[in-house]
């Protein structure tokens, strides 16, 4: 059981950092390496780590699968909706220039929203897939055979 305690302590320190890092990657992607795809994956990894250590049932309480399924559709909707919004504002589909007065401002807002949609879809897709796979294995422990090296 001491190993389990160690895992719990270490993951409790790590998970907030991973989530913070995912948010940094998401919103700092314009300036350094990063963006919606990477951030979504890292965000999902934090929840998967949580589910591996504390069990699937606890993880499902933290973020229910209904929520991830809604987020899954919402991300694509945000992306497509941005395109429709630019059309309504007089531009072409996904033409971010009309979103603000200046070209750079419009592009910045457009990229920000679109990357957010991507991140939302990717992270919730990964969590959903993981939930589906682990829901079959065992409700408490994610792996029965695989955890023995």
């Amino acid at each position: 059981m001491t190993e389990k305690t160690l895992l719990i302590v270490v993951s409790k320190i790590l998970i907030p950092l991973i989530l913070l890092f995912a948010l940094y990657v998401q919103f700092h992607g314009d300036f350094g390496p990063g963006g919606g795809f990477q951030a979504g994956v890292i965000f999902a990894v934090a929840f998967i780590l949580y589910a591996l250590i504390f069990g699937i049932r606890t993880a499902r309480k933290v973020i229910p699968s209904a929520v991830t399924r809604t987020m899954l559709a919402l991300g694509v909707l945000i992306y497509g909706g941005t395109g429709v919004a630019t059309m309504l504002m007089g531009g072409e589909y996904l033409d971010y220039n009309v979103l603000a007065d200046t070209v750079k401002g419009g592009q910045h807002i457009g990229i920000f929203i679109v990357e957010f949609g991507v991140g939302l879809t990717v992270s919730s897709a990964m969590i959903t897939i993981f939930y589906t796979f682990s829901g079959h294995v065992n409700a408490e422990l994610p792996f029965r055979k695989g955890d023995k090296p």
């Binding site: 963006g35 795809f37 990477q38 979504g40 994956v41 990717v122 897709a125 990964m126 897939i129």
Partner: peptide
């Protein structure tokens, strides 16, 4: 970049 994420999906 996009191909990797699509690949894992």
């Amino acid at each position: 970049l996009t191909a990797i994420v699509v690949g894992v999906a």
